[in-house]
Design a protein around this nucleic acid. Sequence first.
DNA 1: AATGTATGCGCTGTATACATAAATATTAAT
DNA 2: ATTAATATTTATGTATACAGCGCATACATT
Lengths: 216, 216
Amino acid sequence: MARLMGNSHLEQIAYNKIRELILNGDIKSGEKIVQDQLAEQIGVSRTPLRQAIINLERDFLLEITGQGIFVREINSDFIHSVWEVRAVLEGLACRICADKMDSPTIAYLRALFDDAYLRWGENGEDKYFEADMIFHSKLVEIANNPILEKSFNTTHVFSVQFKIGLLRSPEITHQEHASILDALEARDGELAEQLMVNHIRNGAAYIKNNALHSKQ
Amino acid sequence: MARLMGNSHLEQIAYNKIRELILNGDIKSGEKIVQDQLAEQIGVSRTPLRQAIINLERDFLLEITGQGIFVREINSDFIHSVWEVRAVLEGLACRICADKMDSPTIAYLRALFDDAYLRWGENGEDKYFEADMIFHSKLVEIANNPILEKSFNTTHVFSVQFKIGLLRSPEITHQEHASILDALEARDGELAEQLMVNHIRNGAAYIKNNALHSKQ
DNA sequence: AATGTATGCGCTGTATACATAAATATTAAT
DNA sequence: ATTAATATTTATGTATACAGCGCATACATT
């Protein structure tokens, strides 16, 4: 038996490689996938490849129709759709979290952001982006809702590529993050939810109004 | 080339059969799945079976861990988690729909509910349940957000089995449905969203407070 | 020239064969 | 008798082989 059961080795490798190819643009949007070619290109057989394909469809990177398997077109409309959903999902995470978060965790997240914000400009944006990722992931983790967690993960695939936290200036988003943490600390789930929803919708609006910036 | 590309024949058959087995309780919660046995039981080879398994995991019916593949335990906690997510997803659908729905569609849905509500009691609950399903699906369809649609579909798997629309008396839910339609007609997305969220959360609360009623 | 028919190729879905890792049983040793 | 070590069976992941369908090109028929 291969070491990992669910995400076995080659299946995971195939998933990652194809994901890279798509997000890097090495496979063009809308392009049709022919299994033999792709399998050979990434060096696995069609069996793990097909399994990877199913997962890539779940994560919205591929589109399976009656006509074949195609690379999804990731235009700003699509990303906007993702962010619309992210908004309510992570809003829900906040709502649930408000009752569950302990002070140390809140302090940790606050420090994480403050630190990253201070360093922003010198070290580049990576630190701030990382804090943003941790922030969002952590909330979902604490919410402890398996459905939410999985749904979040699939939308999250794009967050890595299209960094909403950096679309708008950290000067603005830092304030939004702080407000959310305040609401969480005050155990005001309703408010925290609303703030988070707005936070992400602001990013979504930005996407709609501006060209899409791939890779930071 | 087999007729259907994405959801090919045997893969889909396997998916449906396994889904039945799980939701009927023929395979017990938490039970470990051994591929050979299951494949023989439902009469397909392991290749389409494994593909079906991946999709069943996406739909939260199976759980894949390092130790194997297991039937997910569908207790009331879990269903509650599903409904928490459904609430915000379908709330979002309402918000988006408000700007898009035309009068005929609203009239259609209203008639659908009124008719089903009138017949409720005589014909049993099936008609009302069907209307409920159409209502929720239609809104998601009109919202026309691919992410929302897919996420909805995965949570929807359980709606068929655990009929929230019937958990509480149609006397109550019928009123809620009507209010939502009113809000949509008034193009008040904000209100429609809130009403839908509450509608589903009411069901979620019911689940939390009562034993789980499988299959109506 | 146009429409119908046949032949071949490409690609897919599926079954099966194989190698390896886990689990289980069996033996050996203290 | 209990543990350690080895063998045997079981189950998994992966590769490959096979069969069928669609599509295109070539050929035939009118």
